[in-house]
Design a binder for these strands. Structure first.
Lengths: 247, 247
DNA sequence: GGCGTGTGTGGCACTGAGTGCCCGATACTG
DNA sequence: CAGTATCGGGCACTCAGTGCCACACACGCC
């Protein structure tokens, strides 16, 4: 991807810029691939060859970013998965922040054209999927897998939340502080499930990391305390703990 | 939508069934709208008129479900937003569970064709958006808005997690128990921000639905039990409960 | 130099999704 | 009965996307 990044990347970028210019002027649907080809100074056929589809022109650079993030996760150690994923999300955010002009223009186009909106959503879903895969670490139907799913979704949601609010007013400085707070906010709950040794749904004093107790509203406080105490006793199997750590 | 649901709905369903049959047999891309029209016994033009696009045929019933859920949320009271949203997610799940055959077939098609996959993702994003809007209750840049975003994403993620695992082995009974546990699991952390009066983390015996206690690994069981007991006492403010219900 | 070979590009023709327009059939209303 | 609204079918058109072929320009090799 970055192999022969001589003039290729610039050339690619110039085509994208030409396309965006037309999309903004005439509207996305009203702009044909012939128009774009002419504006960019190459043949219609080559345009298709280089970018695949009309949508892909708009998301070409986004695709590169996705590739970078994917490789980052592949190379990342597994010692602190949540931190790694928030770092990855930070990379994505940085990808937008580094080119505010491009980001804002694409944002406006995407908001206006439903088809592009769906495409954007599919794009972020790809990130989410990469995050999920990394966090789950191969597990499929365990509690950890579910937590991975939820944390990945929350991280993406938080990312998009901050991103959108910035893109609405791009003249403001990039809100890194809000980004970091949002990340901390959404990972502090379920994130704990993912920190530490994988698997081992061990609840109690014997190595598990957290204790989660869920009760119906009316439960007597003393009863709750008693059952929690019982559940925490490693040697007592009489405590009814299900696979998800419920008492 | 359900206004003139006489033979219209059945007729619609028959067309969808015909299309799915062809998609499975010849593949999605290899099946033309002309083929579908012929198989369904109507003209190509009418097919487009009734369903809009080729993809829409496959997601027509899904669209109806989305409409139902949207109306449900519009009519829902705001007293327990998290419960309402999990109930809405349950409706969606029920939508799949009620027609296992359709669900499984669509699942297989969607998995095989990237374009359909993106469409499916966009569809679930619509649910997520509806959930988010409902949970945020008009707020935009507050903590509640962010929590709404994350909870909506997590609920959708959990829904999809359980759904996919069921669709992979559709012969098993519908795993409602796992669905409910997954919902409880993903809403117990951030959900508290959304429960009760905005901002005030109403945890304890005074109306909260569940109690969530999170502790570092090494904590002494007796200490845990004592603090849980204290935290559950409505009249005792000495229990250190933070805004998220952590003790 | 000439000569394969691989790669990128343009031109051309074709398929198929999606749309605008018109016409005929069927209902519904006074 | 005439007037009209609605719906389906047929037709022609645009445009995204693809397969195919020919051409140009790079190389490495004899």
């Amino acid at each position: 991807m970055t192999g022969r990044a001589d003039g290729r990347a610039d050339e690619r970028h110039a085509v994208v810029a030409a396309a965006v210019r037309l999309f903004e002027r005439r509207g996305y649907d009203a702009t044909t691939m012939g128009d774009v080809a002419e504006e960019a100074g190459l043949s219609r056929r080559s345009l298709f060859r280089r970018f695949g589809t009309k949508e892909d022109i708009l998301f070409a650079e986004h695709e590169d970013l996705h590739e970078t993030v994917r490789r980052f996760l592949d190379a990342a150690p597994g010692d602190d998965p949540v931190a790694t994923v928030t770092a990855a999300a930070r990379m994505v955010f940085q990808g937008y922040a580094a080119a505010p002009d491009t980001s804002v223009r694409r944002f406006r186009l995407v908001r206006a054209v439903p088809r592009l909106r769906d495409r954007e959503i599919a794009m972020t879903a790809r990130y989410q999927s990469a995050f999920r895969r990394y966090l789950a670490g191969g597990e499929r139907d365990t509690e950890r897998a579910l937590a991975a799913e939820a944390v990945a979704a929350s991280v993406i949601a938080a990312h998009n939340h901050v991103l959108r609010s910035w893109l609405r007013e791009p003249d403001r400085p990039v809100p890194w502080d809000r980004f970091d707070r949002a990340m901390a906010f959404v990972t502090e709950g379920l994130g704990d499930v993912l920190r530490g040794s994988p698997g081992a749904g061990g609840v109690g004093g014997s190595g598990g990391e957290v204790v989660v107790a869920v009760y119906p509203p009316g439960t007597d406080p003393d009863e709750v305390a008693r059952r929690v105490r019982r559940a925490l006793d490693p040697g007592d199997p009489s405590a009814a703990i299900d696979s998800r750590g419920r008492i």
